[in-house]
Structure formats: structure tokens, C-alpha cells
Design a protein around this nucleic acid. Structure first.
Length: 502
RNA sequence: GGUCUCGUGGCCGAGUGGCUAGGCAGAGCUCUGCAAAAGCUCCUACAGCGGUUCGAAUCCGCUCGAGACCUCCA
């Protein structure tokens, strides 16, 4: 029996608004697509939350034995700024501002994105396609939609006919929006003459003479619209219907709604079985975003060099902080919360180091209650993660396990109350849930043999001094090390360990 | 204005009809030469009002408050 059969996943589907049992289209295989970044600027912490959410999903799918194809795109063209008709392409605009080739912009910020994901231990997707690499496919699907009567061309631009689509399908199925409301409300903009209705959206835009990024098409030189790239790249690599589509809550409308319309219109079937939206990171209750000026960069977070930050925080602290809340809730950023997370994470990380070094003697006088307790904790790890990826609850279980580990370390004899096999399973579960399922690594504050050796010399020296009951000198060594950020910890049996503080 | 989400103890945050969330902070105790770490114990809340129910933080209604989306945003 596969783990995913033993612990079936239930997840909240934005499409139905309900928590549903997760059943893949092809047994044992998960196809998932996540809207990646538009690489026109550095990614900020809010962006990170989304990619972390889907990192957890893909990790846990694999953890349970699914084979996963995870596609996450890079938007390097077509994402417009402002109104669609006069909007400028974000990449092109940035290129003009910085006096760079568009591909230089793309390269720079793609690299930054990859660096950041690596720092947060966010694993790379299976495929990372880019919009500019799929121009042909985008033109093809646009042609197809015109042929089907669901799109129309005006002055070298092509728009999706939402009203027409809505006659046979339901535009607004994902976001719960009503097409009449959409046509009436919203702003009246002078330059929307081209479109038949203001809710129509661009599949292809004619390039103005000064526009840098342009490709030939049946409608003249231009560039693709934003929504079409995701439709093309998701269905190309995952099929016309695939299991799961993710993205930030703010993409639900219009981006994902448009994706559904395009794909359903072109292929005659709904493209995605489960839609998952991760919620926003807020600062003082306001959504973190570049435009509101309350965003900060991961590098500022690590160094603490931002007005909103009291100090720097490590990537794993932040990862832990984010996992303490459910992905579907907004999460408010604050220094207090980060400091609390830093300490909490340290506890789990210490237990991870300790349990790795812990081994069972082989002898045991079984205490059935203790054994049951262990297997229950193991079971709860899976249950909580399978329940809509409830990382907050899983962490609570891991904290219980950490306490158990600490107890064993200080009272070795209690380890004999459980059998060696049970302990082995417990140990493996703690380590694998921490490192694989949740991606929480030990933060090795020292990876420097020279420093490690030096501290160990001091530790040996202090041991000797302590045995001679020269506590004044013993305390001086400890205090002086503490002064430069090295905390010594005296064990019961005279052993000493140390920890580097940030 | 429309669509939707949320309001949990000093703080952060799970939970969704009866059963301890958890972390951080705070108080006490144990261990320890003293610290640190660790363990144990305490602090037990669900915006307000009304309703459904044997029973509601959890369901329904209203009020108040906060936020998101409707325009680029993860």
C-alpha cells in the first residue's frame, strides 16, 4: 500500500470552495502548475510565501510516493502594466528605464529568483518554461480561438470574446464573479475602443513602433497577452486537463479566470481539477506589495537592513515562521513574531541534531503506553499534513516529538521503554518530516573546521579547569565566548557542546 | 458600489458542534558549582448581540471592526 493511499490527501479546492479528497487523473502521478514570477524586479518576501506553499505541496506529494511533474513558469514577456490597451510590457518598460536589453533584465531577475528560492530551500520545479520560449504555441492557440469564434482581431491585436464564451460556458466560475456586474462596474477608460466589451482581454497585442519586444504573427508584429502564456505552458507539459494549478490569491481574478476561459474555449474541457490559492503576506495588516512600498527583499531580511526590521533573520527562521500558519490564511509580518519563530525553530533544529546522534541500545523493557505514544505521534505527522497540508499542526506534533527526544537525551534509560524498531521509525519520521516534507534544514552556524577545532580546544581546556574546580576561570572562558556569540552548554556527564548565536 | 475572506488568550497562530492545539513571552519548580539548555507545573481565549441545539469559538441572522479582489501584483 502506497503512503498516499494510507494517508489520502484532502485539500481546499478554490474552484468548488470545498475541501475535497485529492484524486489524481492518472493514479500515482501528480501534474501541477504554478504561476511563477514576472522577472522585472527582485522578488520580495510576499512572493516567497507563494513559492514556499507550493514547494510544500510538491514535497509532500513526493513524500507520499507520488511521481510529480511540477511546472512553474517564468513570465518574461506579456505582463502588462496598467490598462491593457495602453499598457506597457513590464519587462520592456524596465529595460528602457535601465537602458538594458530586455533579455538582460530577464536574466538578472531570474537569477535573483533562483538565488532566493535556493536560500529558502525551495526546490526547483521539474520544468521551468518561459513565455518567450512559447511564442509559436501562443500564436497557435490564439488562431484556434479566432477560428472557434471566441476571439476577434482589431488593428493587429486579438481579444478574447468573454461575452461570447459566456453563452456556452461560465465565465466567473472560479472567482464567483458575475459577468453583467463586470461589464457594468469597473472603470471606464477612454482607450478601450478596440475591445467589444471592457471585460475582454488581450491574447495578442500589436507592438507600437517603440516597443522593443516583438514577434511576427498573422496579425502583424506584436507580443502575447499575459494570460495566454500560462494556458499554453501548462497544457503543453501537463495535458489539456491536469491535476492542480496554484498561484497567489491575487491572481485568482482575472488571471486564473481567464486561463480557464481560454483553455476551456480552445480545448472544450476544463483545464484544472484542483485550484489552490495561497494567501497574502501582510505587514501591519496591509498586503505586502511593491506598489504599496511595504515590501522588503530577502537580502534585507537576512541582514536586517530595512526600516521595518529590528534585526536580521535567517532563511530557516522565516521558512518556519511561514509554516506556522496555514497557506490559505493571511499571515501578518512582525518583528515579535519573527523573534518568537527564531526561538521556536531553534528548538526543533536542536532536537534534529540530537536525534541524529541518538541510538537505541537494543535492550528494552517495553512500556506499551510509551510505544503507543510514539506510533501515535508518527501517525499524526501524516494525518495533519494530509489534511490540507496543515503545516502549523504538523509543527505542533514535531514539537511534541522534540520534547520526547530531549527527554531521551537527558534520561537515556527511558529509551529502553520502547523497542528498537519503534525508535528507529520515530527517528526516521522526525528527520524526514523536518528535512524532506517541510524542508527545514539544520542551520549549521559553523561550517568552518578551523573554528570548530579552536572552540574544541577551549572546551577541552575548560573541562580540565572545571575538574580542578577553578570555577572563576571556567566561567571566564564561558563568558568570554558568550561575549563573541558562542554559547557553551554543560552536559550532565561533563560533556560540553556549543552553539553559535547570530 | 459589487464579489469574497477574516475577527481566537500579553503576542503570533491551529482548530470548525461536546475532548489539551502549538510556539513566543510571563510565573514557579527540578536538574546544575553557577549559567545556558532541557524537563515538569501554572497562566485556558474565541469581536458584540440575538437565534438553532441537550450542548457553539465552531451552524444561522444582525451589528461593529479589519483586509483582499473588482486596475499591475505571489
Amino acid at each position: 500500500m502506497k503512503l498516499y493511499e494510507k494517508y489520502p490527501i484532502h485539500l481546499s479546492n478554490s474552484l468548488s470552495g470545498e475541501k475535497e479528497k485529492f484524486e489524481t487523473i492518472v493514479p500515482g502521478f501528480v501534474g501541477m502548475y504554478v504561476c511563477g514570477p514576472t522577472v522585472y524586479n527582485y522578488v520580495h518576501l510576499g512572493n516567497v510565501r507563494t513559492f514556499l506553499t507550493f514547494d510544500i505541496l510538491s514535497r509532500y506529494f513526493r513524500f507520499l510516493g507520488y511521481k510529480v511533474r511540477y511546472v512553474r513558469n517564468i513570465t518574461d514577456v506579456g505582463h502588462l502594466e496598467g490598462d491593457v490597451d495602453e499598457g506597457e510590457d513590464k519587462i520592456g518598460k524596465k529595460a528602457q528605464l535601465e537602458q538594458l536589453e530586455p533579455m538582460e533584465i530577464v536574466k538578472r531577475y531570474t537569477e535573483d529568483f533562483h538565488t532566493v528560492t535556493r536560500q529558502f530551500n525551495i526546490l526547483p520545479p521539474s520544468i521551468e518554461p518561459s513565455a518567450t520560449g512559447h511564442i509559436v504555441e501562443q500564436i497557435n492557440i490564439t488562431k484556434k480561438l479566432i477560428d472557434l469564434g471566441l476571439a476577434y482581431e482589431v488593428n493587429g491585436s486579438v481579444y478574447f470574446d468573454v461575452k461570447k464564451y459566456n453563452q456556452s460556458h461560465h465565465y466567473g466560475i472560479l472567482s464567483g464573479r458575475n459577468i453583467e456586474d463586470l461589464m457594468e462596474s469597473g472603470r471606464d477608460l477612454d482607450s478601450q475602443d478596440e475591445k467589444r466589451e471592457k471585460i475582454d482581454f488581450a491574447l495578442w497585442k500589436k507592438a507600437s513602433p517603440q516597443h522593443i519586444m516583438r514577434w511576427p504573427s498573422p496579425w502583424g508584429e506584436g507580443f502575447p497577452g499575459w494570460h495566454i502564456e500560462c494556458t499554453v505552458m501548462s497544457t503543453k507539459y501537463l495535458g489539456e486537463t491536469f491535476d492542480l494549478h496554484g498561484g497567489g490569491m491575487d491572481l485568482k481574478f482575472p488571471h486564473h479566470e481567464c486561463e480557464i476561459a481560454q483553455a476551456t474555449g480552445a480545448n472544450g474541457k476544463s483545464p484544472v481539477k484542483y485550484w489552490i490559492h495561497s494567501n497574502m503576506l501582510t505587514v501591519n495588516g496591509q498586503k505586502m506589495s511593491k506598489s504599496s512600498g511595504n515590501s522588503f527583499l530577502p537580502s534585507e531580511l537576512f541582514s536586517g537592513s530595512h526600516a521595518l526590521l529590528q534585526k536580521g533573520y535567517s532563511p530557516m527562521t522565516v521558512r518556519f515562521f511561514m509554516l506556522q500558519s496555514h497557506y490559505s490564511s493571511t499571515l501578518d509580518f512582525s518583528n515579535e513574531a519573527l523573534i518568537a519563530a527564531e526561538k521556536g525553530y531553534k528548538k526543533l533544529s536542536n532536537a534534529l541534531t540530537l536525534v541524529k546522534a541518538l541510538s537505541h541500545s537494543g535492550n528494552s523493557t517495553i512500556n506499551t503506553e510509551a510505544e503507543k505514544n510514539l506510533s501515535d505521534l508518527i501517525d499524526q505527522c501524516y494525518q495533519t499534513m494530509s489534511d490540507d497540508f496543515n503545516t502549523a499542526k504538523t509543527l505542533a506534533v514535531l514539537f511534541e516529538m522534540a520534547s520526547q527526544i530531549n527527554t531521551w537525551v537527558s534520561q537515556k534509560e527511558l529509551l529502553n521503554e520502547v523497542n528498537a524498531e519503534g525508535f528507529k521509525k520515530f527517528k526516521a519520521t522526525y528527520i524526514s518530516f523536518m528535512e524532506e516534507a517541510l524542508g527545514l534544514k539544520e542551520e549549521k552556524s559553523v561550517n568552518n573546521n578551523l573554528l570548530d577545532g579552536t572552540i574544541n580546544v577551549l572546551i577541552e581546556l575548560r573541562k580540565k579547569v572545571r575538574m580542578d574546580k577553578n570555577f572563576a576561570l571556567s566561567d571566564k572562558i564561558r563568558d568570554d565566548l558568550k561575549g563573541i556569540g558562542i554559547q557553551l552548554k554543560d552536559g550532565k556527564d561533563g560533556e560540553m557542546s556549543y552553539e553559535i548565536e547570530q
